[in-house]
Nucleic acid binder design. Sequence first.
RNA 1: GGUGGCAUAGCUCAGCUGGAUAGAGCACCUGCCUUCUAAGCAGGCGGUCCUAGGUUCGAAUCCUAGUGCCAUCACCA
Length: 592
Amino acid sequence: MNLQETLELHVKAAVKALFESELESVEFQATRREFAGDITVVVFPMLRVIKGNPAVIGEQVGQYLLDNVDLVKGFNVVKGFLNIEISDAYYINFFQQIKDDESYGFSEVKDDKAVMVEYSSPNTNKPLHLGHVRNVLLGYSVAEILKASGKKVYKTQIINDRGIHICKSMLAYQKFGNNEEPTAELKGDKLVGNYYVKFDQAYKAEISELMAQGQSEEEAKKNAPMLLEAQEMLIKWEAGDEDVVALWKKMNQWVYDGFDVTYKNIGVDFDTYYYESDTYLLGKEFVSEGLRTGVFFKKEDGSVWCDLTEDGLDEKIVLRSDGTAVYMTQDIGTAIQRIKDYPDVGGMVYTVGNEQDYHFKVLFLILKKLGFDWAKNLFHLSYGMVDLPSGKMKSREGTVVDADDLIQEMADTAEEISKDLGKLEDYSEEEKQELYKTIGLGALKYYILKVDPKKRILFDPKESIDFQGNTGPFIQYTYARIQSILRKADSAGSDIPSSEEVALHDKEKELIKQLELFPEVIQNAADQHSPALIANYTYDLVKEFNSFYQNVSILGADTEIEKSFRVALSRTVSHTIKNAFQVLGIEVPERM
RNA sequence: GGUGGCAUAGCUCAGCUGGAUAGAGCACCUGCCUUCUAAGCAGGCGGUCCUAGGUUCGAAUCCUAGUGCCAUCACCA
């Protein structure tokens, strides 16, 4: 039972004893800094049950608590706020309980149903850019947060490996490629992406030409030979044309190899992969099934639809009149396939941009209508777009911030700063490079994860990401500082005060209070699918620690017991930073 | 046009189920490194919480209407 729960019982008892009334709940908040006290009871809500002056009621309840509850050491009332001072013994005892727990904040798996988290889900015709980076970081972190909150988790993605967009890259490669192959300088995904751009250039040139010949823009766009050829290629692919399929396989493999490098760079992983080309057929099966059971209906032209008008939505197509699958068909198939493959999965999280809010609303509804009980546990982790000052990123026009480049730039910035500070003279070149990457990635990941997922991010490549203030490196730096102290504090502080006699320094007490919040923050972040809550918590913790560090001497404490206590406190803070950053997917360095 | 999201300091963002004088960082200005790592600490400057109503003892937070930006409403994905 935590402090708040304990106090709630006592406040209820106080109200019963003093006013013969029953409170349903008690409202608490942290005491504001300018007042004495550790936790505050808001008296106003009690007025519904008790009549009287809030200040007087606060006074009476406070006195009752002081007289009857050991851990209450004092109180004061300001307007309708009862500020309660808690004894140091409470905080010291609490700290005793958590100080040796290296996985503090994490829960054991307590749910027999697993959650599948999908993220990344790229098309295979171009490299990953900053938008994908947000997706990948969010999905990975939410998966880790869910694990930490006691869920079994599978990480997965759906790879959109077929369609007209891939044919465009393939066609341009056939025309202009000269059998170019990926090299160390040019990864496969980049190579394929280049041909996607080349397609677009050639296509646009043809459009201009046709328009010069007198066609309207609309006509020209439809009639351009490049597009016609790409469409022809798609038909050939679906017909299983050997040459086309061979090229498709070759180029897709280049892209997968390129993606793997990027994922490894970012530091994310997947437990399973799904390919659109594998799952759309299962989707079609269930469309037939739904047609039989009346979930769907067929129009005269043969296309199949789902009528969602009673749910306040429109009719949605699930199969084209020519019998081919649409996006929705495939997503129905993929969802069902996943549950078949992993029967312990009880719910899924889809990390996909908010431009697809409607799609997922419909998908979930259709799956419910098809009668799957797990359909009620589907969640669209919808996040805002990452935009540039110039607007949307467009791969075709080359206005994207490339993921690999960005990671490299961040590491370069970290290197510059580190060199200026010159604290790593005795590190080997290899160790240094590794550290620069840790710091650079830390800056990037924190920058993206600290903002509420549903808000859009405006990223200005000209203004580099900060390394000071509310940033990843600031937090990493604090961690490194603590490690430095721990290295110097020869005998680890296992000998910490247990008596009520020790007076806690204000900064020490604030730190313990902050530590106390961590498990709840993890649960909240899991419930809300929000890494931002973890990031903001960690920042507060670290700020508190730095203030402690600058104002209180740890290794130079007056007594041995004080020194041990402060070392132990620092160590626990560093565990907590490490654990918080682990679920954000950010590494912490021993030095920096 | 219908639907959904967002709007807080010059900039980037917090603000939990409504609670005290709305908080951080960056930028700008002051101090602090012979003492545990100054990527730090201590402090200053800076606000019509988009607007107008409403509910409430109390609203940045909830409701209604409006404004602005974004997305979506395809036999595209």
